[in-house]
Structures are given as structure tokens and as C-alpha cells.
């Protein structure tokens, strides 16, 4: 049910040639670095890259979908991986073009890169950080930590997940607990630090959005920490 993508995947795999064929279409990695700016809010790549809202993308080539140990993927993507989906230039391109049409239940809140050249470029860029092929490694680390001015004391607050569960009911009127994200982004399975930074950015009106500024505006530091503790792994 959550993976009508099985057919989509089969269709994609059938139409596109395997990775070797697609390699010829690889784009310009330098230009791809600029395209990757759109991805950096959630994904890190390069030396020291870590999984944050999205998985880190080191070594993504040849990796099975949802294959990174310890990252909490959507069921949809897990099923895709278990059905044999691997990340190569062609499959990455199909996924990045329209993530939700490719894997309907994915938590990747991204409308997609519609320009084939952009996709080819960013895939060429990502390819530099995979062992296969081997023209990698000494690239500079590209992903910076999120810029923020949140006091370390606030980040260190241990949130009460039970209180967070209660408070979360205000969020789930709009943000689906199942992780759907049409029109309104998914907020489940975020690393708690990212969640806290984002909420404080709304509270301080650094991030624009009237509803979120209003909601975050009256949450205390403890309440934000409680929400972060809950949404890290809402069960």
C-alpha cells in the first residue's frame, strides 16, 4: 500500500539503462556543488559528514536504498531497498527528479529537481564522495553545520518525551505523524538538535512563516526540548 512505488521502480529500472550506461551522462561536478546547496539543509556529504534530517551521502553510489545503518528511513524506502533498489546515477536521477512519485511514502520533503542538467550535475558531484568509482577522496568537506545562535545551554536541555507527546498534538493537526509532506513539511525523525534550532529560529522570527512563528513563539525552551525529544522517534 505504501509502496505503489514497486511498480514505479520496476518501470524506472526497465526504462533506464544500468549505471554503466548512465555514467556517460554524468554532468559537471563543480556545477553540481552549487545545485547541492538545495540539499544541504538536510544532507551532508564529504569528510566528517553525518546523518542529520536526511542520511549523509558519502558512499551513496552502489548502496542499497535505505541501506545506511542506524538511519531511520521511511518504510517506503526500506521496502524499495529490500526489493532490490540500489543507488546509481540512473536511480538517483529518477528519485531526485520527483521523490514522492518515485517512493510515495518517502520522508524526503523535496519537490524534486526538474532540470535534467541539474540532476546530472549534482549526481556527478555526489559521485566524488563514493568509493565506486574511485576518483574521490580529498575533496573539501562541503557540508557545514547549520548556522545558528542557539545557546548551548538551551541545546543541552533534556526534553520530556511524554510532555512532548502531549504538545505534539498541536503539531499533528497539520504535520502528519506518518510523515506525509504535501504542502506542509514532515517533522518526524529529526535529530533533536536540528529540531531545537529550527524552532528557536521561528521563535526569534529568523525563519519566515506566520503560523510557525506564532506556534513557536509561545513555546518555552523546555517545551521545545520536549517536542524535539518526542519527534526524534515518535512511537
Amino acid at each position: 500500500m505504501r509502496w505503489p512505488g514497486a511498480q514505479v521502480f520496476a518501470a524506472v529500472a526497465g526504462v533506464l539503462s544500468p549505471a554503466a550506461g548512465a555514467a556517460a551522462e554524468l554532468g559537471d561536478a563543480e556545477a553540481g556543488k552549487l545545485v547541492f546547496e538545495k540539499c544541504k539543509g538536510c544532507h551532508q556529504v564529504g569528510e566528517g559528514a553525518e546523518s542529520r534530517i536526511g542520511p549523509h551521502l558519502n558512499g551513496v553510489f552502489g548502496r542499497k536504498a535505505a541501506g545506511l545503518e542506524g538511519f531511520n528511513y521511511s518504510k517506503s524506502l526500506e521496502r524499495a531497498g529490500n526489493s532490490g533498489l540500489e543507488w546509481h546515477a540512473d536511480t538517483l536521477s529518477a528519485y531526485v527528479e520527483n521523490p514522492r512519485s518515485f517512493a510515495s511514502g518517502t520522508r524526503m520533503s523535496f519537490p524534486g529537481l526538474k532540470d535534467p542538467q541539474d540532476r546530472a550535475n549534482v549526481i556527478a558531484y555526489l559521485r566524488k564522495f563514493s568509493d565506486n568509482p574511485r576518483d574521490i577522496p580529498e575533496a573539501d568537506p562541503t557540508a557545514k553545520g547549520t548556522d545558528h545562535s542557539v545557546d548551548p545551554g538551551i541545546l543541552a536541555i533534556q526534553g520530556d518525551p511524554e510532555y512532548g507527546a502531549y504538545l505534539s498534538s498541536e503539531c499533528t493537526t497539520c504535520h502528519q505523524i506518518e510523515g506525509g509532506d504535501e504542502g506542509i513539511p514532515s517533522i518526524v525523525f529529526w535529530p533533536d538538535e536540528d529540531f531545537i534550532i529550527a524552532m528557536h529560529a521561528y521563535k526569534e522570527k529568523q525563519r519566515p512563516h506566520p503560523v510557525m512563528q506564532m506556534i513557536a513563539g509561545r513555546l518555552s525552551n523546555e517545551e521545545i526540548a520536549a517536542l524535539a525529544a518526542y519527534f526524534k522517534n515518535p512511537e
Binding site: 497539520c174 505523524i177 506518518e178 504542502g183
Partner: peptide, 14 residues
């Protein structure tokens, strides 16, 4: 408008 569609999906599943 797109946000309202997201909200509809959210509240009805809530």
C-alpha cells in the same frame, strides 16, 4: 493554498 491541502491531509488523519 498548498499548505491548506497539507493541513487537510494532516487534520483528517489526526
Amino acid at each position: 493554498y498548498e499548505e491548506s491541502i497539507g493541513w487537510y491531509a494532516g487534520i483528517t488523519s489526526d
